[in-house]
Structures are given as structure tokens and as C-alpha cells.
Amino acid sequence: MTRFAPGERVLVRRAYPPGHIRTPWYIRGKTGVVERICGEFGNPEELAYGRDGTPKQPLYRVRFLQKEVWDDYAENPNDTVDIEIYEHWLEPAA
């Protein structure tokens, strides 16, 4: 059972821990919409250090409006960026 469903608005944690993190810096603290659930995968933050990656993490594709990602975004206001983000990086959006 995943914590979030497609269509749900989610906030990416604004956190900057050390280590092997697959959540791009530029998307931390931004709000998007769950595009799809990709399945469960070994946690790369564990796998990178030779551990077994458990517990597995649900992986989501989250869609963000570019104009909400970049303050100075100058192209089409409907443009989007889709990013794969593991569940422990997501919180419900207010």
C-alpha cells in the first residue's frame, strides 16, 4: 500500500542530508502531482553503501510545473518536468 495516489499533490522534503541521494537538489521543497506509481525498489541511499536496500521504497513519478520550479522560467507556462522520487522524500502538500 502506497502512501500517495496518482493525482495527489505532494511536497518534496527540503532536506540536504549527506550521502548518495537520488532526489535532485533543484526539486527539494517544490510541490507537484503524482503522475504514476512505479513500484517498489531498493533504497539507493542504502544500496550505495553496500547494504541490501531494505526496506524497499515505493517510487513515484511526480509532475511539476516548470514555472513553479524555476522563479525565472521564461518558456511556456504549461511546461512540466517529471521526476522519479522515492516515497520517503515526499510529504502531503498543504
Partner: peptide, 11 residues
Amino acid sequence: EIRVHDSTADM
């Protein structure tokens, strides 16, 4: 509309 896909994990 341009849709960028950032290939960050297992896809």
C-alpha cells in the same frame, strides 16, 4: 507543451 523527464532512479 514541453515535458522534460528527469531520469533519476529505476525508470
